[in-house]
Design a protein around this nucleic acid. Structure first.
Lengths: 78, 78
DNA sequence: TGGGATTTGTACGTATGTATA
DNA sequence: CTATACATACGTACAAATCCC
């Protein structure tokens, strides 16, 4: 699932997987993506890596984060 | 110098200090800012915090980073 | 009113990899 | 070959805000 020793950073690999779920509609607009803790558990990565993953998705404009609430698919709009 | 318990995050405090040095000309365009290790030593912060400091300056458009080389004042242009 | 669980934010420490000088 | 410097990744801890009972 995740290749820790490949050329692609782990956080990018996880971001790609979540991005695919967003693209497929599995994760719908204004619905929360997995929490950092959930990402840690599902992919077996450290929390710092999970945070970088979410940051990467944010930089791609795929999600937005509400402090102390969660991160959601789409734009802050609404 | 740095207040670890204040409301302003340490990485922002350090970024503010370096931003002031840039504004004053102490750190001139296309000259390197202190390395992560130097920031760690000068301000007594952790490596991760030093990285966040540089990231903050980059987000402000004050510096640009050349991988494996260093971070410099101004824009990548040159 | 209170308390617990959840979630993100910050911070520290450490280790390894890769590229450059 | 060595030193420097950034990139990634792990682990840990506590704080702050929110949510729900």
């Amino acid at each position: 699932m995740i290749d820790p020793h490949g050329p692609v950073p782990v956080y990018q690999q996880v971001a790609d997987i979540l991005a695919a779920r967003i693209a497929s509609g599995e994760l719908a607009p204004h619905r929360p993506i997995p929490s950092e803790s959930a990402i840690v558990q599902e992919f077996g990565v450290a929390r710092g890596t999970a945070r970088r993953t979410v940051a990467a998705l944010r930089e791609r404009g795929l999600v937005y984060t509400v402090p102390q609430r969660g991160t959601y698919v789409g734009q802050p709009e609404s």
